[in-house]
Amino acid sequence: ILLSEITNRFLVRIDDFEVQLKNIVGKLQRNNNKNKLDQIFQYRQKLITSKSLLIPMEELINAIEETFLNEVVKTLEFNRVRLRIKRAMTLVQHYQEEMETLLHLEEAISSYRGNEIMKTLTVITTIFTPVMALGALWGMNFKHMPELEWKFGYLGSLILIFVSTIAIYFYLKFRGWTGGILKERKKKSLF
């Protein structure tokens, strides 16, 4: 009877935990950041603590059954506590799996976002390389720079910069290397 009441308290705590877990999943869908990851680890710690407290109770039930055999197995209280402990352990294991899934999801989202950031920086750097290279070249102070004497040298350099930048952009787009970085992010998307 005492074990049954203790286990019942665990079941109430697990129900509270379920509500917290549903809240964190909803928050992750709306806004994914470092604080949410910290909350996931705190909830994971609560689960580990609950499981470590339930394991001795499960062991005690097995010891009682081993000691008293058929006498105790027939009692209503023993069967009730055995079922409560079994239910609590099942719930804890289920929520542990859900927490691991959340952590893997968080890891995948972070990895994807990091890759997209690196891809974006690479594409931007590649697209603006002609502008920077030609600007650096014409910023030098050499004595003999024939294009400075040309009548349409300034216009020609602007056209060269513009055409080379557009050519690189379309080459990257044609090869599929820009991916979705130039498209707007959907509001409900985790990515």
Rank of each mutant, 00 (worst) to 15 (best):
I6P: 07
N8T: 09
R9W: 07
R9Q: 11
L11K: 07
I14W: 09
I14V: 10
D15A: 12
F17H: 03
V19Y: 06
K22H: 10
N23A: 09
N23Q: 07
G26W: 10
K27Y: 06
R30D: 14
L37R: 11
F41A: 13
Q42L: 14
R44Y: 08
R44H: 04
Q45P: 05
S50P: 00
S50C: 02
L53T: 13
P56G: 00
P56L: 00
E59K: 05
I61L: 14
A63Y: 03
I64V: 12
E65T: 06
F68P: 03
L69P: 07
E71I: 11
E71P: 08
V73D: 06
K74A: 15
L76A: 10
L76Y: 09
F78R: 02
R80D: 11
R84C: 07
A88Y: 02
T90D: 04
V92D: 08
H94A: 04
Y95M: 14
E98N: 00
E98A: 00
T101S: 15
T101D: 14
L102T: 05
L105I: 05
A108E: 09
A108S: 10
I109G: 04
S110Y: 13
G114C: 04
I117A: 04
V123G: 05
T126V: 01
I127L: 01
F128M: 03
G135K: 05
A136Y: 06
L137R: 02
L137E: 01
M140S: 10
F142K: 11
F142G: 12
K143D: 09
K143G: 09
P146A: 08
E149F: 14
E149L: 15
F152E: 03
F152Y: 07
G153A: 01
G153F: 02
L155R: 14
L158F: 15
L158R: 10
I166W: 14
I166M: 15
I168F: 04
F170K: 14
F170I: 14
Y171C: 09
L172W: 03
W177F: 11
T178M: 03
G179P: 03
G180P: 04
I181N: 04
K188D: 14
S189M: 05
F191P: 02
F191V: 01
